[in-house]
Design a protein around this nucleic acid. Structure first.
Length: 567
RNA sequence: GGGCAAUUAGCUCAGCUGGAUAGAGCGCUGGCCUCCGGAGCCAGAGGUCGCAGGUUCGAAUCCUGUAUUGCCCGCCA
């Protein structure tokens, strides 16, 4: 849905200056200051063949262009400035061409046609509350899901629940000792969480609890009836709670196949790895040695219990067999970087080849000013609480600024939740996030509500436009002006931005772009009237604004934010 | 001790993969609605891009070293 401006420029230049269009194309850049020009070509790259200094080349180009190219449709004039050849383009032409294109085309998204990508995200542990720490994996993964879908990929989202492992031995132990059915039913996740915390504090003085826990997990792995029943109960109650949160966040999954899903195939997986001959015994445990520069991968503990890694190997094999993916993304915190290097390395050692297509998508963890969060110590902020607070704050702001608004509660929820999501997607994902209430609940500046506000304002603006000037449509001969040029360049760049985000697995690239777009629009809006008595002028500006709205709406959607019509 | 990552304004961060005078937001100071939504806009103050070398026409960006911080380093996930 974009026009290739650089291509038009480079073809023009190549004809007039007799240089290869491809070379020109790759050199085109934007000057740091608009006073220099709209586009520029640094001439360093031409020094080798012409054996002249770049400033000389630039001024030769300028002279040649001025002599040969009269009345060029795109490039109005060129001017050399030291080693740079600066171009001044016909801005009205570009505004018109982009608007024409945006208005007539839809978002095609053919970039990833025929390719399948699976994304493993959110993946909370059962029986642990959904904290703000889980938010990042959830919203980053969900956004990547939407980004790849937009580009035409077939996407499969998997919630790899942490529903297996010795922690369930711990939970069963705690529940058997101190638990009650009534309390479990009333607030399952918080109750299980309290049991989990209590287990760890009591185990410090009573070490035999650990043995009891290991024994319960062993019974679970051996299909013990009681262990299985309790486990099933914990899992069902937790998943139900998680789905409530996912509903609020607008996050969905194709599969909830957690670690337990693979428990039945673990033996076969281990067996086939033994047959390939990459395993060995060490201190009673089964490992895969990975060379001198990496710790060996532990497949089975000395007590025969399997590990996280074992289950991830089984999961990877299953997923490739089932979905034949071209790309597999694991949206998991950066502390687990080694785990994934080991996983991919083991897959490589198995001779599978497709391990190259597996990527860990790491992100920084959430920290409080007081220190890092630990589930075991019970030091955690519940996501639900954060969403509630944000939603309440949004409602109070609506009461103050727009008390007549319809569906206040729904809008407040959309704005509050979006604010929290955006706060998590605004910056490069590898950065650690300091959790500061004032920042999460700030709706001014670089925030989700700012983007939503801009969208809502455009929406009402276009509504008003229709009342006065009728339906929006592209007409030849409209009086486009150069004032929309900056905005139009951004609009035209949207698809490239999304592609860039997909290559880097980085939603924040879109966040930054949208902030830039909204800011440019707001500035434009403050200096130019859109709706005037002049029909042609109004329509041409409204079409530019319409482009902003389309891109803003789609961009918000890709991040998982709701583009409300009014707020 | 080994490995991975980060380091840019008081705070939180961008900087288009090597280009011209390093940019935003928050906070602070001062302006802007007889006019399309002030959750907005404009302006000001605020910088030795952690430090030291190297690569070349040119480095916040690439390489090496170093400091600081965070995370990881077989029987948790």
């Amino acid at each position: 849905m974009s026009i290739d401006i650089n291509k038009r420029l480079s073809e023009n230049l190549s004809q007039v200056l007799d240089i290869p269009a491809e070379k020109c194309y790759s050199l085109i850049e934007t000057p740091p200051d608009t006073g220099f020009g709209d586009f520029a070509i640094p001439c360093f790259a031409f020094t080798k063949e012409s054996r002249k200094n770049p400033a000389q080349i630039a001024s030769d180009f300028e002279r040649l262009f001025s002599k040969k190219a009269k009345n060029n449709e795109v490039i109005q004039k060129v001017k050399s400035n030291g080693p740079y050849l600066n171009m001044f383009v016909n801005k009205v032409y570009i505004v018109r061409e982009v608007v024409r294109h945006v208005f007539k085309s839809r978002f095609p998204g053919l970039h990833g046609t025929g390719k399948t990508v699976i994304i493993d995200y959110s993946s909370p542990n059962i029986a642990k509350p959904f904290g703000v720490g889980h938010l990042r994996s959830t919203v980053i993964g969900s956004s990547l899901y939407k980004i790849f879908s937009f580009l035409g990929y077939k996407v499969i989202g998997i919630n790899h629940l942490g529903d297996w492992g010795t922690q369930f031995g711990k939970l069963i132990t705690a529940y058997k000792r101190w638990g009650s059915t009534e309390q479990l039913k009333s607030d399952p996740v918080k109750y299980l969480f309290n049991l989990y915390v209590r287990f760890h504090s009591e185990a410090e003085n009573t070490p035999e609890l650990e043995d009891e826990a290991r024994s319960w997990f062993s019974r679970l792995e051996n299909n013990d009836e009681e262990a299985g029943r309790l486990w099933g109960q914990f899992r069902d109650l937790s998943v139900k709670e998680f789905k409530k949160i996912y509903g609020r966040l607008g996050v969905e999954f194709d599969y909830y196949t957690g670690e337990s899903f693979y428990s039945s195939v673990l033996e076969d997986t281990i067996k086939s790895m033994k047959e390939i001959g990459i395993t060995s015994e060490s201190d009673g445990a089964l490992i895969v040695p990975l060379g001198d520069d990496m710790q060996p991968a532990l497949l089975r503990k000395s007590d025969d219990a399997t590990l996280y890694l074992t289950r991830d190997i089984a999961a990877a094999l299953y997923r490739h067999r089932t979905f034949h993916f071209d790309l597999a993304l694991y949206v998991v915190g950066s502390p687990q970087a080694l785990h994934f290097r080991q996983l991919f390395s083991v897959l490589g050692k198995m001779g599978l080849g497709w391990n190259e297509n597996c990527h860990h998508v790491p992100f920084g963890h959430v920290r409080f000013a007081e220190g890092s969060m630990s589930t075991r110590k019970g030091n955690i902020v519940f996501l639900e609480e954060v969403l509630d607070k944000a939603s309440e704050l949004a409602l109070s702001i609506i009461e103050e600024k727009n008390p007549g608004l319809n569906h206040k509660n729904e809008v407040a929820e959309a704005v509050g939740v979006s604010s929290v999501i955006f706060n998590s997607l605004k910056n490069y994902r590898i950065k650690d996030v300091a959790f500061v209430w004032d920042e999460v609940l700030n709706f001014n500046g670089e925030t989700g509500p700012y983007l939503q506000y801009t969208h809502a304002r455009i929406n009402s603006l276009l509504k008003k436009f229709k009342e006065i000037h009728g339906e929006l449509r592209f007409e030849e001969g409209l009086s486009f002006g150069a004032e929309g040029y900056g905005i139009v360049l951004l609009i035209n760049n949207f698809e490239n931005v999304v592609i860039h985000a997909s290559k880097e697995f980085e939603p924040s690239i879109i966040s930054r772009y949208l902030l830039d777009l909204a800011s440019q629009f707001n500035s434009f809006y403050n200096t130019h009237r859109i709706i005037t008595d002049d029909h042609s002028l109004s329509l041409s500006r409204a079409l530019v604004v319409y482009g902003v709205k389309m891109v803003l709406k789609k961009g918000l959607e890709l991040l998982g934010l709701k583009a409300v019509e009014e707020m």
